[in-house]
Amino acid sequence: MSETLFGAPAGLFARLDRTEVRVPDVRAALARLTPADLDPELRLDVFEGTGAGPMLVLEEAGRRTRVLLAELATQLTRSRVASTPEGITAGVVAWLARRPVPDEVAAATGIALLDWSDPRQTVLGWRVAVTRSALVVPWRPSRTASLPLVHQVRSAALGRAAAVDATLRMAGPVGLCTATGAPGLDTTVLVRPEALLQEMADRGLRLRDAHVVVTPGRPVACAEGPVARRLAAEATEACATLPWRAVADLGWV
């Protein structure tokens, strides 16, 4: 969930070539969207005369999101989307895929997983997320979501996470756990860390002081403390090593 917003960054030459995405380009890209690009539940409207320029309004399952086309164009320019019709359309589709998750959708399909709770990626927390095609999109409660609803969504998401199929692979003293057929959802296995430890014990690796190495969106590694620290020692990606019992104490993001 922390990758770049509009896909992989372009190469050096593309970055040197500064082109701007303008409001008419975005409007044209929105007009080019086919039903295949959009969820059937999603409604798109462009409203004129808001005072600040044309505004895009998304409506899905009771959640409304507004954005000025000028702002969207700036975001696309900053992300260095190629300012060709195809490039801008792809950028708009990518932006739409990351639109806020409606509370209803989160309640119906949300899954609990571990993610960073701060922009500096130092503190882990549980988060409710939904999958949209190949993408894992975090849920942030809407302004109208009540506290009981938030609790309900979270507990349902924990239940779904516990039902996710996991595959354990052993690499000597390290157990590697992935969610079967669901890229990006690997940290859901830590909803039941004791099941992971039990399976490792069944495969012949009984840990006395099990630590997990958590990288949001990537497979979870589980090993004895020193081995886990060695694994994560020079990782260039943000990851956290913690005793497996500490996982249960992590808060919600």
């Binding site: 690499a171 590694a221 081995v227 694994l231 260039t236 990606e237 990851c239």
Partner: peptide
């Protein structure tokens, strides 16, 4: 060293990009 050989393989699974 034996541990490291396994850990190197594990790094490949968790962080293949670098």
């Amino acid at each position: 060293v034996l541990t490291e050989l396994h850990v190197a393989a594990a790094r490949e699974v968790v962080w293949p990009a670098p």
